[in-house]
């Protein structure tokens, strides 16, 4: 049941986007997200949609697969829409019982929905085409100036990549523990909040114990393989810019210029 969450998990295929330097993708995604919140008119969103469309096409990840991943956050999306729809003051359009839909509400709700959808699909394109390792590499490299002020950049990146590696394993384990306890008559679904929280104990204790054991084992395995922090470490896949990456930067630049001029001015 928990394995159905596909949002943003790496999708293996060969494409220009998969081969692209992760720094480009990370930078591009950041700019794209910022742009979404800066648009003042409908044209800006149109440009964003076009941009996203091109990127998705290039990624060779089936659009259907991405939409499936969206299922997990559809509730969140709906809540946002409903809140904006009913709670924005302004000129009333329709009033049903005590709820009023205003013109402004409708507008904000639609913009919010559009913005969120574009945001989530946009950032999931990045994670779908970039392995978490590449992503952490990009962050490590991108944040490396912070080393000067003693930020443990390498350690943070390593922690993140290990966390990502173990998420699917721990999810699967949670599933197994739940089943083992349900087989002993445990009930995770009914009762009030307090009861439910208490019912989690038989799930959480084995999960934590196992997670600690794994952490311990992993630390030992890493040490056995000569891991001793980021110093003097070489890279199997060092980040080097290629011709395509510069083209991509140019493409992003064009998008930026377009969204500033069209999205904000007109």
């Amino acid at each position: 049941m928990l394995r159905d969450i596909t949002l943003g998990q790496y999708y293996q295929t060969e494409s220009v986007l998969h081969r692209m330097d992760p720094r480009v993708k990370l930078g591009g995604t950041l700019l794209y997200i910022i742009s979404l919140f800066c648009f003042k008119n409908f044209w800006g969103y149109l440009i964003a949609v076009l941009f996203l469309g091109c990127v998705i096409k290039l990624s060779k990840v089936p659009f259907k697969y991405m939409v499936k991943g969206m299922k997990a956050i559809i509730v969140l999306l709906l809540i946002t829409v409903v809140f904006n729809l009913f709670l924005t003051p302004g000129t009333a359009l329709i009033t049903v019982w005590k709820l009023t839909i205003t013109k402004e509400g409708l507008k904000t709700a639609l913009t919010m929905a559009l913005r969120l959808t574009l945001l989530i699909i946009g950032s999931s394109v990045m994670t779908l085409t970039t392995t978490p390792n590449q992503l952490t590499d990009a962050m490590e490299k991108g944040m490396s100036p912070l080393k000067v002020i003693k930020v443990p950049v390498h350690e943070l990146a390593m922690m993140m990549s290990i966390a990502l590696r173990f998420i699917p394993i721990l999810l699967e384990e949670t599933d197994k523990i739940m089943k083992a306890q349900i087989a002993r008559g445990a009930d995770f679904e009914s009762g009030n909040l307090f009861k439910r929280a208490k019912a989690m104990v038989p799930l959480l204790v084995p999960l934590f114990i196992s997670a600690f054991r794994r952490a311990n084992d992993l630390a030992m395995a890493m040490e056995a393989r000569c891991y001793r922090g980021g110093d003097n470490r070489t890279k199997m896949k060092p980040l080097v810019y290629h011709r395509n990456d510069f083209i991509a930067y140019a493409f992003i630049f064009v998008y930026m210029v377009a969204s500033i001029t069209i999205g904000r001015v007109f």
Partner: peptide
């Protein structure tokens, strides 16, 4: 050294990246 539980000693998210982990730590050229 190879340990008992394969899940708890694989660090990389891709097979080749995991195999490269040791040499990376040793400072072997790319």
């Amino acid at each position: 050294m190879v340990f008992q539980n394969p899940d708890n000693q694989i660090i990389g998210q891709i097979v080749e990246e995991d195999v490269g982990f040791g040499p990376e730590n040793m400072g072997v050229p790319t």
